[in-house]
Amino acid sequence: MTTFRFEKFAGVGLLLVIWEIVARYKLLFFLGIIKMEGLAFPPTIPSVAEAFYQDVLDGTMTLSIGYSIFHLLIGLIGAVLLGIPLGILTGWSKRAEYIIDPIIQIIRPIPPLAWIPIAIMMFGLTHQAAGFIIFIGAFFPVVVNTYSGVRGTDRKLVEMAKTLGANEMNLLTKVVLPYSTPMITSGVRISLGVGWMCVVAAEMFGVSKYGLGWKIPYYSNIFMYDHVFAYMLVLGLIGYGMDIIFKRFESWKLRWRETI
């Protein structure tokens, strides 16, 4: 899973080399893709490193990472706390599914960006507003996966539990939930990724002066692409790191599974 493989570094290394060549020799300008010669776009790797270093030194980077993770956690915790029970309810009861499913299906395609006015109306320029946008992105994978997991519970296991004396509550907590845990967990993992992708949408309208998602449009507006790139890379790396940690947790938690 996260074993050391030469190829992993080779791919990234090649990409960095290409990036550096394109940046250093201003290939995008000479190819006519961008029009302004003076524009440092894409920025060179050293300049991005320099920008990163500067923002780490004055604390902007650290605070931004902290705020973004804070916003992510608000949204993700909300998504888990609401999404899992709702998924269980719709998966467990046909009637609940009839009532709730159409609502979910209508709201689901609305992109998190479209919720910004509502977030501002409801919460003002607060961390909750940012958390709400992330919640919108993270909520649906949790609900849908929980629903599928519950609905897909092996009928034989349920019957077996019944013959062993399980009541409705036992069936839910001792059979259906454990059975659905892999699906729910992968739903949460998708939510983690989607929620993190919503960080820019969640912070761009200015809930605070820090945040990875706030800094990217901010530096972009003042043409400081070296800083923009630094923040984009940090977003990418943290997202990747969180996914690795989550996968580790998942495979430990679900070690009862037969895996290939």
């Binding site: 092996d154 034989k156 296991l157 019957e159 077996m160 539990a161 019944k162 013959t163 062993l164 004396g165 059979v175 454990p178 059975y179 845990t181 009862w256 599974r257 037969e258």
Partner: peptide, 19 residues
């Protein structure tokens, strides 16, 4: 209705895989 006085053993074992 279901009672817990009969012990059922299935061909496909039907064990709880998480236990």
């Amino acid at each position: 209705g279901v009672n817990n006085e009969c012990g059922f053993v299935f061909q496909e074992y039907v064990l709880f895989p998480w236990r």
